[in-house]
Design a protein around this nucleic acid. Sequence first.
RNA 1: GCUCCCAUAGUUUAACGGUAGAACGCAGCAAUGGUAAUGCUGAAAUUCAAGUUCGAUUCUUGGUGGGAGCACCA
Length: 635
Amino acid sequence: MIEITFPDGNKKKYDKHVTPEAIAQGISPSLKKRCVAAKVNDNLVDLNRPIEEDASLRLITKKDPEALDVLRHSTAHLMAEAIKQMYPDANFGVGPAIDEGFYYDVDFHDVTLSEDDLPAIEERMQSIVDQGGKITRSVISREETLELFKDDPYKLELIRDLPEDEAISIYRQDTFTDLCRGPHVPDVSWLKHFKLLSLAGAYWRGNSDNKQLTRIYGTAFFSEKDLNNHLHLLEERKKRDHRKLGKELDLFMLSEYGPGFPFWLPNGMIIRKEIEDYWYDVHEEEGYEFIQTPIMLNKDLWEVSGHWENYRENMYTSEIDDKAFAIKPMNCPGGMLAYNRKLHSYRDFPHRVGELGLVHRHEASGALNGLFRVRAFTQDDAHIFMTKDMIVDEVAKLIDLYDRVYKVFDLDYHIELSTRPDDKFIGEVSVWDASEKALEDAIVSMGKDYKVNPGDGAFYGPKLDFKLRDSMNRIWQCGTIQLDMNLPERFDLTYIDHDGSKQRPVMLHRALFGSIERFIGILIEHYAGAFPTWLAPVQVEVIPVNLDLHSDYAKEIIGLLKEQDVRAESDFREEKLGYKIREAQTKKIPYQIVIGDNELEAGTVTYRKYGEKKQITVPAATFVSMIKEEIDTKQ
RNA sequence: GCUCCCAUAGUUUAACGGUAGAACGCAGCAAUGGUAAUGCUGAAAUUCAAGUUCGAUUCUUGGUGGGAGCACCA
């Protein structure tokens, strides 16, 4: 007999070799039906895997997050089986479950697959499912495995990399056998709701020196409904694509004359200026000073900063008067020069210096993507100089600031702490430990949760990253707070301490939006182009019912709004009311006002808010103060 | 940078290797209106370079740009 401990702490005796499936069945047949896999001593295993000794057991049902991974991994195998049947020469790389689905990397050799081939593979997958079949696991010897996969070069490579003493498991279903750690669903009949989505090249083992395989992406769910919801989400993301909306709303453009160098158009400029003004306001309140450093500086400076050595391939260079210059890829070196222009006292710390700095980086052509990845962008940078014992308070203050600003944009976030890399780092381990502790203390003091990424810090210091979640469930890294132990040394930064001695300040880099360009790209998709009133390029569209009778009153209303700096417009073309209303809607203007005889006589306006159906008539002055309030509070 | 895919008026798009067609937008004319498209008329396009062909938007090669990924991303 062995003893099984359940998640609620209950213990129960079972015969040796009992399977999780049998245990589930014993509890209730309906539970067994919902079970996908099990966690035995925290290892995810198949339901029919016998348990040999005392263990803790957690049954994984369809509701558990791990269950989707199992399902999707099994669907990847199903896809591989279908592909093997259709393309017998295909060789397989790896085929894991990922966040929203799965993929499998396949070497089709001389065959080039296109997206048009995916439906046929899907059909084959479906017919395999229709035939039904168990998925079974077996453990075989290394020699047997090597023999079994002798025609699969990628699998052989994976097998050779497995530790000598590790048991090698394979999974079989019907005609298909794959090297796999598992676990899998017990039966292919579980795999009903899947969809193949796209394909693209992917380097074998993620190394650009290796051959490129064809990666096929797909997704799978337990129910038709979940699958459809996910497909709708993907469609909605496509609809909100900032490149599409940016064109429709005339916010920005890209030209083939400047790949990766965005142009800001009048509408986009309004949004950008609002955000920058807000940034200056809020930082001024927080005690920041502002600078702007040159875009181009002598190569000697980049040698001091280390960029010439470490970042050269991403820098644009030029010559001035026979001297080598580089366009800045980061703002910090210029900021260091500004700091060093004079002596600093501990009394002036923390010394906070902000810069909306335009940087240029030569990104690989294939990396460019709308406003998300560009070659020229504005960092909302700041450098803060202080003493060691100020770190906790200052970082806490920053977290509070970030928290407030992200709320304004209705963006959730979580914090990740990246710590000292294992090998490549500068400075003393004890200093690193203290710095990491300071960052942690700051987070804790603000009552925030965080996740640790061990070894993910930059070589020059630990950092906090702020990962935003948008309305389409995507994660974006925007904010960052990084301690820097490198540049203060390289630029020999100092301050005068109490006792008159020269000391080295602590410095941190921080950005709230990261890149203004990218942040606006995120906002476009987050809001689906329907910006909150304070950001909207046009805030009010005034529509007269009859041009002859109501134009003057329309102009009067616009005058009232403009007096309060509300961006109001009217279209005095000879078009029908319905036409103008439709246009205001397609432009996603927050407020449309219709005025006719009724409004003219009563001195009122009839407004409708974007996204709502109801029409409300109020005195003109009431409307003005209402919208003014909404704009001022950035609702 | 790599693999695959794509490139037609300002925008979205149609055209077996044989006259480039539409919708929106723009301009002109008429219609004067109450919550998502009034009608008529007009101007407006084959990404660039080479090749195959009697003839190329269509086929081939290359350039440029874009997309999906990969790699990259202090």
